[in-house]
Amino acid sequence: MENRICNLFKIKYPVVQGGMVWCSGWRLASAVSNAGGLGLLGAGSMHPEVLQEHIRKCQAATDKPFGVNVPLMYPEIEKIMQMLVDEGVKIVFTSAGNPKTWTKFLKEHGMTVVHVVSSSKFAGKCEEAGVDAVVAEGFEAGGHNGREETTTMCLIPHVRRKTNLPLMAAGGIGTGAGMLAAFALGAEGVQIGTRFALTTESSAHEAFKQLCLSLNEGDTKLLLKKVSPTRLVKGAFTTAVEEAESRGANVEELRELLGKGRAKKGIFEGNLEEGELEIGQIASLFREEVSVADVMKEIISDFEKGVEQIRNLSSF
């Protein structure tokens, strides 16, 4: 398979693994890269010295391209960006901030820069900032979402109309059929989070994985909209958030309820009662924890079968 995304990252398949907090360590990123996709380390849940360790372990575990996802709200952002330069990282995905802030710096140091957006407006700003590609993420995605609440199926054609940059689709994509649908709408690659978060190589806690693999349709909800819209598994914590929001809790009250380290508690430590359990809507399609290699084989096989089915349909 060859297109602009494959050529940009020098990968076999146009499949990128989302840089998810508490899931995307060196084992997951290197496994995805070794399977022909692009693995990403999730810097958002790592202190600088921990990220440095994961970069070096990833470099030792794969000779294929990999990257780092950096939320631009990261508190030690200057230290992280310089570390990426010093450690020879070649691909950086940025999110949750203005792409103009760091794109020039990263590109001056020879890096490929991608920014994650939730609207066509911000896709246009990415092009102005000089990024190499964009990820358009719909609100089906797990974790932090855009305030627009635009679905992936609606977002991709809007972004495609706005910019000619290489485009990846994210949010609610975890199968070959989903990848094919995204391509039909104008995407050239996909970024997949949830499906990879539930693999053997993910650093998420086993209790979290098994809970997510038991979810049914409708078992996640977008909450915390006054703070930062976040898709969560329904449970004790989400009930508390819903009750607070229904009585009109302000931003300060919601932040106090959220506290610190709640995502780590839920995703990494497996506290399913008190933790913030972030996962995408598509989790309900999956029931078995398998390896990254098996996931990648299934996605590509199903994508190719889907292409053939479309060809057969068009022959009528």
Rank of each mutant, 00 (worst) to 15 (best):
residue 1 M to R: 03
residue 2 E to F: 14
residue 2 E to W: 10
residue 2 E to Q: 13
residue 3 N to D: 09
residue 5 I to L: 00
residue 11 I to T: 09
residue 14 P to W: 04
residue 15 V to I: 15
residue 18 G to Y: 08
residue 22 W to H: 13
residue 24 S to E: 09
residue 28 L to R: 05
residue 29 A to V: 08
residue 32 V to S: 00
residue 34 N to I: 04
residue 35 A to S: 14
residue 35 A to N: 06
residue 36 G to P: 13
residue 38 L to A: 05
residue 38 L to S: 03
residue 39 G to E: 06
residue 40 L to H: 03
residue 41 L to N: 06
residue 41 L to T: 06
residue 42 G to M: 04
residue 51 L to M: 11
residue 52 Q to W: 02
residue 53 E to D: 14
residue 55 I to A: 04
residue 55 I to K: 02
residue 56 R to A: 07
residue 57 K to N: 14
residue 58 C to H: 06
residue 60 A to E: 14
residue 60 A to T: 11
residue 61 A to Q: 12
residue 62 T to I: 04
residue 65 P to A: 00
residue 65 P to C: 05
residue 70 V to L: 03
residue 72 L to F: 09
residue 75 P to N: 01
residue 77 I to S: 01
residue 77 I to H: 01
residue 87 E to A: 05
residue 87 E to S: 04
residue 88 G to N: 07
residue 91 I to V: 10
residue 93 F to N: 01
residue 95 S to C: 12
residue 98 N to M: 12
residue 99 P to R: 03
residue 99 P to S: 06
residue 103 T to D: 02
residue 106 L to R: 00
residue 107 K to R: 11
residue 110 G to C: 06
residue 111 M to P: 09
residue 113 V to S: 02
residue 114 V to P: 08
residue 116 V to R: 01
residue 117 V to G: 02
residue 119 S to R: 05
residue 119 S to K: 02
residue 121 K to Q: 12
residue 121 K to E: 11
residue 122 F to L: 14
residue 125 K to I: 14
residue 126 C to K: 03
residue 127 E to I: 11
residue 131 V to T: 08
residue 137 E to S: 14
residue 139 F to C: 15
residue 139 F to E: 08
residue 139 F to Y: 15
residue 140 E to Q: 11
residue 140 E to C: 12
residue 141 A to G: 14
residue 144 H to F: 09
residue 149 E to H: 14
residue 152 T to F: 07
residue 153 M to H: 06
residue 154 C to S: 15
residue 154 C to I: 15
residue 158 H to C: 15
residue 159 V to D: 10
residue 162 K to D: 02
residue 165 L to C: 03
residue 165 L to T: 07
residue 165 L to E: 04
residue 168 M to V: 11
residue 176 G to N: 03
residue 179 M to P: 06
residue 183 F to I: 05
residue 186 G to F: 03
residue 187 A to Q: 03
residue 187 A to K: 05
residue 188 E to V: 00
residue 188 E to N: 06
residue 190 V to M: 04
residue 191 Q to M: 14
residue 193 G to V: 01
residue 198 L to V: 05
residue 201 E to G: 07
residue 202 S to G: 07
residue 204 A to Q: 03
residue 204 A to C: 11
residue 205 H to K: 07
residue 207 A to V: 00
residue 208 F to W: 13
residue 211 L to G: 08
residue 212 C to L: 03
residue 212 C to S: 09
residue 212 C to R: 04
residue 213 L to P: 06
residue 219 D to A: 07
residue 221 K to A: 12
residue 222 L to F: 08
residue 225 K to M: 04
residue 226 K to F: 10
residue 227 V to W: 13
residue 227 V to N: 10
residue 229 P to G: 08
residue 231 R to L: 09
residue 235 G to I: 01
residue 239 T to I: 00
residue 241 V to P: 05
residue 242 E to P: 10
residue 243 E to V: 12
residue 248 G to K: 01
residue 252 E to C: 00
residue 252 E to L: 11
residue 256 E to G: 01
residue 257 L to T: 05
residue 258 L to H: 13
residue 271 N to Q: 06
residue 271 N to A: 02
residue 271 N to C: 07
residue 275 G to D: 05
residue 277 L to K: 02
residue 278 E to I: 06
residue 280 G to Y: 10
residue 281 Q to R: 06
residue 282 I to V: 15
residue 285 L to D: 06
residue 289 E to R: 13
residue 290 V to E: 10
residue 293 A to L: 12
residue 293 A to Q: 15
residue 295 V to T: 11
residue 299 I to A: 05
residue 301 S to V: 00
residue 301 S to Q: 13
residue 302 D to G: 13
residue 311 R to M: 13
residue 315 S to E: 15
